[in-house]
Design a protein around this nucleic acid. Structure first.
Lengths: 147, 147
DNA sequence: TACACTAATTATAAGGATTATAATTTAATA
DNA sequence: TATTAAATTATAATCCTTATAATTAGTGTA
């Protein structure tokens, strides 16, 4: 199933005039198969088996390119480093305050919020982001077990 | 008017057992009177006239303390540095893609989103954040003037 | 298939934001 | 005023990310 996604993503890259290098392919493939919204470093470490000479800069460069083409989204949170997410369908993220786990959350896009913001501020609104924070089930369980 | 706010904030700090040092007082005062959601460095630079020997670490330390007590919120955006905002009333931010300007935007809090997220993910939700991005009026005008 | 052109990679260094450390100073309390 | 723990300072260190320059390699064309 996600092989089709990969093929379509590669088409998108070719259409944009972006070369398909083995490293770029691997980063894209890893992100498409990853469910964990990895950081650049996690991607780097995950691929160093296959590409022992790959530079961290390559990971960052490719993430930038994939972002520019619209295949990947960058998630910037608190004090930690950025995480990267394959732009599939529009969705929000629920983040655990304790362990940092990120869970996808689908919700009808908040168009009316964007509209109101345009009216009130005079901005020409392009998009919005939203994250919901809380304690995940695992961490809730851990907390109760301690008592 | 905001003198009352300052007094109340200082009470909050005292109740939490936090010492009121001149530097801490100045950081708090600056944030309360600031409309621009400043970065740590901006605060540092703004106060170096009054405190020529103040360390950047002091600014960061105080921002952390103010955050822990709940008086200040940290806003983390894309690639830039964090910005800090006095937690007054609940509100959202509209951010200009071009110049980075941040405008406050009031909207009835999205309780139903939090509720649904709890049901779907099993999280114990504590809060959420949302930012709306677009082009501000000034930058729109600049763009049209160029043509 | 080979060539040429340009983009991508690599290795390294540099940059900026934030935090850690240790010594000194100071606010708050009795 | 003396005491004590917390806050400040100065500095160095850390982490994430980007810039640079040289080398390598993808891709369209002959």
């Amino acid at each position: 199933m996600s092989e089709g996604k990969l093929q379509r993503a590669i088409e998108t890259l070719k259409d944009a005039g972006v070369r398909i290098t083995p490293q770029r392919h691997a980063v894209l493939d890893y992100l498409l198969h990853s469910m964990t919204h990895p950081t650049a470093d996690e991607i780097y470490k995950a691929l160093e088996g296959k590409f022992p000479n790959m530079s961290v800069a390559t990971v960052y460069n490719n993430l930038r390119v994939l972002k520019e083409v619209g295949l990947v989204r960058e998630l910037t949170y608190g004090d930690a480093s950025s995480r990267f997410d394959c732009e599939t369908t529009e969705h929000y993220h629920v983040i655990c305050n304790e362990c940092g786990k990120i869970v996808d959350f689908h919700y009808p896009s908040l168009d009316e919020v964007e509209k109101l913001a345009e009216q009130v501020t005079g901005f020409d609104v392009s998009h919005h982001r939203m994250e919901i924070y809380g304690k995940c089930e695992d961490c809730q369980e851990l907390a109760t077990r301690k008592h």
